[in-house]
Amino acid sequence: MKIDSIKEKLNIFKIPLNGIKLIEASAGTGKTFTIVLLYLRLLLGIGEKKIYKKKLLVHEILVVTFTNKAKEELYIRIKDGIQNMYLTCINKTTSDSSFQFFLKEIHDINEAIYVLKRAQNDMNSSSIYTIHSFCQHILQLHTFHFNNIFEEKIIENEDNLYLQATQDFWRRFFYTLPEDIIKIIYQDYKSPDHLLKTIKPFFYIKSINFPTKILNNKKLIMYHEENIKKIIFFKEMWLIYHKIIQKTINDLEINKKIYSKFNLIKWINKITEWAKSETKDYTIPSILKYFTKKI
């Protein structure tokens, strides 16, 4: 059965309070107001008498949302809803059509006033949570029970956990990379153990701000291709200008012991040989340092 075929226009006062119900709504359609009305129905026990009769206390009604901001808004709106319903029962009249329905359904007005007053007083013990805070509450509530189940142990040596996490990372990202990138990485990191030894000192730094964060292999492959293009471009420029570079250095007033004719020819020949080779990785001749502004 398609979900569209069972969709109905929402009537908050006809929703049965037992079982599981799904309410779909987009932004700005009154989701919070709907929750407030359902909350009041649960407090006052307003529903089909054959199915639902119990009046719930505030700590028995669980409301779970995503963010702390939404949780605070729900708390305030529910508290205000209880206050407004309480005043409506006291005055026995209201211009609000939603509260008019409640007045029609309440058979004992004095009992309703008592229930709503008690709810106002008990709002500090209401069960309104974010998903995380609800889980934390359950864990704290049943600490002794959970401790017996999991038999907590103090881990004195975290090295095995670090290694396991590194191995998981290695399998997840390293194995799925193209072969040419794997060969480049393998030049520096032969195994997960080797990688862990390199990165472990960073574990004790509180915060590291990387200029660029690579979140997936597709982005890593893109950066790799850009690096290869830069190296190829440098090689092309070297092959065009290397003879001019040699002449320019010969005309400079520099240390001729270091930049002797023999050394220059040797360095330039090696770099030229590298520039003519196929670019498969990030290997760059160390002697290029002699052709930078600073050595």
Rank of each mutant, 00 (worst) to 15 (best):
L116M: 10
S127M: 06
H242A: 00
Y186K: 13
N255M: 01
K190P: 02
P201T: 02
F33N: 12
I82R: 10
Y175H: 09
K153R: 15
A70M: 12
L43E: 02
H142Q: 11
E179V: 11
G19W: 03
M123D: 06
N84D: 15
K153W: 04
I214V: 15
E111I: 04
L195Q: 05
A112M: 08
E151M: 12
F173D: 10
L22M: 12
K280S: 06
A112K: 05
D122K: 03
F233T: 10
Q164I: 09
K270I: 00
T34L: 13
E225L: 03
K71A: 15
I138G: 03
E151D: 14
Q167T: 10
F102T: 10
L264A: 03
P16W: 04
L62W: 04
F203T: 03
I154E: 14
I90F: 11
D251F: 03
L195S: 04
H59F: 03
H132V: 09
E226R: 11
Y162F: 14
Q100P: 07
K92N: 15
F174L: 09
E156R: 12
L62A: 09
A275N: 01
Y290R: 03
I295Y: 10
I295W: 07
Q140C: 05
T212M: 12
K69W: 06
K213V: 15
L177T: 08
D193N: 13
L17W: 07
G45D: 07
A25H: 05
K270Q: 06
L44H: 07
H242K: 02
S95E: 15
I12L: 15
I12D: 09
I184D: 06
F173I: 11
K257S: 05
K256T: 02
D159G: 00
K2S: 13
G19K: 09
R41W: 09
I265Y: 02
T292L: 12
L37E: 14
D180C: 09
I228T: 01
K280E: 07
K200W: 03
N255L: 01
T130H: 08
L141G: 07
I113C: 06
V58D: 01
Y290F: 15
E73S: 12
D180T: 09
V64R: 04
N217Q: 12
Y186N: 14
I244N: 03
F33E: 15
F144S: 13
T279D: 01
I23W: 07
L22A: 14
S133I: 09
G45H: 07
I149F: 12
F169Q: 02
L196N: 01
F134P: 04
H142V: 01
M222L: 13
I6L: 11
Y162L: 08
I106C: 10
K49G: 13
I199H: 05
I15E: 13
F233P: 00
F202R: 12
D108V: 07
R41V: 14
I268Y: 00
L163M: 14
N269H: 01
G81W: 10
I61V: 15
I78Y: 08
S95N: 14
D281S: 15
C89S: 11
T272A: 00
I208P: 05
Y204G: 02
H142S: 09
L44V: 08
P178Q: 04
I35Q: 08
I228K: 02
I244M: 01
N217Y: 05
I240P: 00
D251I: 02
S97Q: 13
L264M: 13
F101A: 11
A119K: 03
I268E: 01
S126V: 08
F13C: 11
I232N: 00
Q164P: 00
I51F: 06
C89P: 10
L141F: 04
